[in-house]
Design a binder for these strands. Structure first.
Lengths: 198, 198
DNA sequence: CTAAGTCTAGACGCGAGGTCTAAACAACGT
DNA sequence: ACGTTGTTTAGACCTCGCGTCTAGACTTAG
């Protein structure tokens, strides 16, 4: 794969909507040509396959996320606050890149068969969360027993909430949604004592 | 699509492993022939497409789940207990049908473009959970503000935990996992002392 | 024994991915 | 101005796999 720059790199994001609408296998090369205006031979000059085009789009998305997440993880705050910040950052990604997030998640199986993306998706969210849960046990701001399971649960919860909003066409409002998710993850669904007493 | 019975119906589940390994679009008709022993023309005698074969497999899976879930939802128990039972039932499905669950979730995008399956996946889990959350507010066993978001979060959490176990080859232990998830969903991650004070 | 329905073999058309050739075009140093 | 190198494009081509079709074999019922 050659380095992609200039007009081609600028035009490729237009293909995201097509991938989101039809999925990787459902998207024809001609669809990408139509969406981007880049002729077919030019696409094959830069990429060796359709799959590689999508991988290029998703890699940039995931590396951006990884940078944000790494910064948050490194901050000097209680783990529970950093956890909330990561959730907000992840939801922000959904808000900013609806199409690419939709492809990433709805074509998850297809994508996790591309090794570089399988690692990237995992490293961008699951691993940092697992580390934060571990930190939280030590600084006392979180409690937990099975970090791996808990990290998966949090990852799944945030992901599905974002995906649901995207697939149903609802706008993604990161502050409001992350506040609710944060509360759910920290306090659960047990009614507050005050409320039951009343 | 003709009604599928007898030896063909008995052999088809063998195709689940192939679908799980390669995905819907990555599975060739010949792979299904090899896995099941059913000749190609016979498959096209019963089904009009490859997609229909997978749909047939998944429909039976989802209808079984829907039956279990409907029974649990109708029980005369506090909503929080019924919620726990549904989570356990869902994880049991993962344990009993690893391959089909893997296809269902990793090829989610491909599958939600098949209308009958899109509805079935939603109806089998998300809707019942949402109803239970609503019940829980009325019987006082659960608290919540945004049932739709919460239902998505729970659905995502349970799904990702199960999927993670399946994809990493770990055994799915429904009682242990649902107990942990249940605790997480009810009490969250806030350490115990702080919770009792507040 | 016929008739209807079930099952199977093998050949075919076709669409889409990806390769190849060759030509047009741009940028560059000499 | 001129070759050189790399970029971009058109169009023909090959291959693979889906789904169709014809036709025949086998099974069961009337």
């Amino acid at each position: 794969m050659r380095e992609v720059t200039g007009s081609v790199a600028a035009a490729l994001p237009k293909a995201a909507a097509v991938f989101a609408a039809r999925g990787l296998d459902g998207t024809r090369m001609e669809d990408i040509v139509d969406a981007t205006g880049v002729p077919r031979p030019t696409l094959y000059y830069y990429f060796s396959s359709k799959e590689e085009i999508l991988a290029w789009l998703l890699r940039s998305l995931l590396s951006d996320l990884a940078v944000d997440v790494a910064y948050i993880v490194g901050r000097d705050e209680p783990a529970r606050d950093r956890l909330g910040a990561i959730i907000a950052a992840y939801l922000q990604l959904f808000a900013d890149h609806r199409d690419l997030c939709a492809v990433l998640l709805t074509d998850l199986g297809r994508i996790t068969r591309i090794p570089v993306l399988a690692d990237a998706t995992w490293a961008a969210f699951h691993e940092p969360v697992r580390k934060l849960l571990d930190d939280g046990e030590h600084d006392g701001s979180l409690c937990g027993t099975d970090d791996d399971l808990t990290a998966s649960a949090i990852y799944g919860a945030v992901t599905m909430v974002g995906l649901h909003h995207i697939l149903t066409g609802k706008p993604v409002d990161p502050p409001a949604m992350s506040q609710r998710l944060d509360h759910l993850i920290l306090h659960g669904l047990t009614p507050a004592p005050e409320r039951t007493i009343r």
